[in-house]
Design a protein around this nucleic acid. Sequence first.
RNA 1: GCGACUAUGGCGAAGUGGUUAACGCACCAGAUUGUGGCUCUGGCAUGCGUGGGUUCGAUUCCCACUAGUCGCCCCA
Length: 427
Amino acid sequence: MAFQIPRGTQDILPGDSEKWQYVEQVARELCSRYGYREIRTPIFEHTELFLRGVGDTTDIVQKEMYTFEDKGGRALTLRPEGTAPVVRAFVEHKLYGSPNQPLKLYYSGPMFRYERPEAGRFRQFVQFGVEALGSGDPAMDAEVMALAMHIYEALGLKRIRLVINSLGDLDSRRAHREALVRHFSGRIDELCADCQARLETNPLRILDCKKDRDHELMATAPSILDYLNDESRAYFEKVKHYLAMLGLPFVIDARLVRGLDYYNHTTFEIMSEAEGFGAAATLCGGGRYNGLVEEIGGPEMPGIGFALSIERLLAALEAEGVELPTGEGIDCYVAALGERAKEEAVRLVYQLRRAGLRVDQDYVGRKLKAQLKAADRLKAAFVVMIGDEELDKQIATVKEMASGEQTNVPFGELASFFTERTRREGE
RNA sequence: GCGACUAUGGCGAAGUGGUUAACGCACCAGAUUGUGGCUCUGGCAUGCGUGGGUUCGAUUCCCACUAGUCGCCCCA
């Protein structure tokens, strides 16, 4: 093999690309319905943005960034996530001054993380995400979660679960952090090396450790929910209230911490409950990030958003047996016999395409039999056959492939013949 | 980044230290002189992930690399 695709990346070939288009189209339409508009930001940003935005104690920053220096000596990074760039654009273009508040945005595009690939995990993957900036209303939280769930349901996913938690505001987090340090510090040597380091850097993440999950200290560890101050508790109650009002079932997981530093108050994930989803069961992750806009250099402004992976979404659809369009099938295949007929076919194919039909013909010198076979393979609804007889009479032989029935249609009437037929079938 | 397993034609999949690498699907041709889907016949890997090594000889043994899968970590 001369060349291989870089590790953890993938080509999306015809047959699959149609599924991507469909899924993205559904997501875009729903975003539009909810009042979100698309924003497109660069694939790479200054490294500093992610250090500040994502947090330099996170795994993403510490070991997963594709960072490089350009010829001008600038430190750049292929974006590992979408929120920091969107907030950067929001601040840079002073969109906080827009009369439309909150500003509701969505994006779709590749993200890059230097990770060991496995099922559902890639080095380049596509996230579809939304960010609502400028609202600290718990109803906003509910809307964002509702939109994510709506996208999945619209595509036909049934076996999904919404998991939520609250990290509270800064004061609550600080109080909880202190409680965690107090709880673990006496016996920290009983936990794994990572957790020992986390005690210093980010004790909250200890709760998320899979290795020490069953340790007795975990079960007795102080829950963030017990350290929410009145304001944070009230906020979380409101969020739950709105979700209930919307009829959105959810479960609370006090250990749902999420991997990015900027989260506070509401965090959530949507998981697939279909079989075969291990590490990649998280289809969507999101949360509130009040304070991030300020961190990036803007005014104090709340925000909330989510990001979902298209790869995992497609995997979940596959696991649940949901059929997606494959782009197969054409309206008509024009088969020609002989040189004269070939010329007529070339003209006819173009004419029918101009009339709005999906039409194709032979370009590799197939005989009639092979042309019919090719038409069958292309899932053509009809085949137009042209030979000397047809040319003399200016009447084509038209075969309906499903039934095998043949009729004669004058050349001049072919376009309207097919337009009528295909339109009827499409409805 | 760590551990384990895997790598044969377009796809799936047998197989062996020694001249010709099963089989199925797909594809191409013919039986059908102007007609697809069924059937029959024939064709289709100077090649067994890449690079080294052992050997008289390797697709088969060893090493490295690359890639995939699974577990860990973490996430989308």
